[in-house]
Simulated assay, not measured.
Amino acid sequence: MGVNNSPNSASGEYNLFSKWTGKKSKYKYRLIDYKNKQDKKDFLLSDTKCNLEILPQGIMITGNFKEKESIIPVLKDEIESLTLIRGKEVIDTFYMSPMYIMSKLGIPNRVSRHLQVYPSEYKIAETRIHIKCEEYQLTLITSGSRHSKILRNLKRFGFDTNLKLVEKPRLNLLQYRRALDL
């Protein structure tokens, strides 16, 4: 099922991405849960850094999983359900910060967040991806800011038929502060 191309990046060998580009890849995802129908739960695959590639034929997860397997292919036809969970968005700006002013002018948070002064002004919790197939289940996490890119790629390649979107509520502390001032 896998290809033996990337046992361990520390040993000097490269994975598929680095084979094509000549660079070592930076892992952007973490496989936190892998359940197989035969093995029930594979502890060797849990909490492993990996990358996720969305293709027209399916989803490919590459990483340093086992000695002989570095790719987990998930064909589009095998996917029973695909759940994308966006983390909670927290906005905690201070009076007269650039982000606060942009928000008051009606500019969306996805634009005004680039003008934050402190990293604590705008946070998005981690994005979770649950892939359920007949034989196995996968759960991946990544940065909350990657949610829109993942969603766009899933829709572009036609995964929206079995895609379920879950968005956690937003927490805008500016509204709570105004209520306390009254």
Rank of each mutant, 00 (worst) to 15 (best):
N8C: 13
E126A: 04
S143T: 11
I54N: 07
R86W: 09
L182Y: 14
F157W: 04
L182P: 13
I129E: 00
E135Y: 01
S9I: 14
R110Q: 13
L84R: 07
A179F: 15
N5L: 13
L84D: 06
P98E: 09
E53H: 10
N162V: 00
N36E: 07
E134D: 01
I85M: 08
K164H: 02
I101D: 15
I141P: 05
M102Y: 13
H147C: 05
G58D: 09
T21G: 06
D181A: 13
R86P: 08
E13T: 07
K37V: 00
E89V: 07
C133N: 08
Y27P: 09
N15Q: 11
D160W: 04
T142P: 09
S143Q: 12
C133D: 04
P169Q: 02
W20F: 11
K40Q: 11
W20H: 11
N153Y: 05
M99H: 06
K40D: 10
R110W: 11
D42W: 06
L173V: 14
R86G: 09
Y122R: 05
S46R: 11
Q175F: 14
L84K: 02
K68F: 14
E167N: 07
S120H: 12
Y100R: 11
Q137V: 06
P7H: 13
M60N: 15
D33G: 07
K19M: 10
M99G: 01
K68H: 11
N162D: 05
F159N: 01
K66N: 10
K149N: 02
M96S: 03
Q116D: 00
K37I: 00
K19W: 14
F65S: 12
Y95R: 14
L180Y: 15
I107W: 01
K24D: 12
V74T: 04
K37G: 06
D77S: 12
T93I: 06
L180I: 15
K68N: 12
S70L: 02
H114I: 02
M102L: 08
I54K: 05
I61C: 02
N51F: 00
I85V: 06
A125K: 14
F17T: 10
Q116K: 07
F43E: 10
L75H: 08
P56H: 06
Y100K: 09
S120C: 12
F157S: 04
F94H: 12
P119S: 08
H130N: 08
D77Q: 08
Y14M: 14
R170L: 10
D181Q: 15
N8F: 13
E89P: 03
L180E: 15
T127E: 00
S18C: 15
Q57W: 13
L163V: 04
F157I: 05
K28V: 02
L45R: 01
P169I: 03
V74L: 06
T93M: 08
K104T: 07
K37T: 04
T62L: 06
N36Y: 04
L16Y: 09
R110M: 12
K66I: 03
F17N: 03
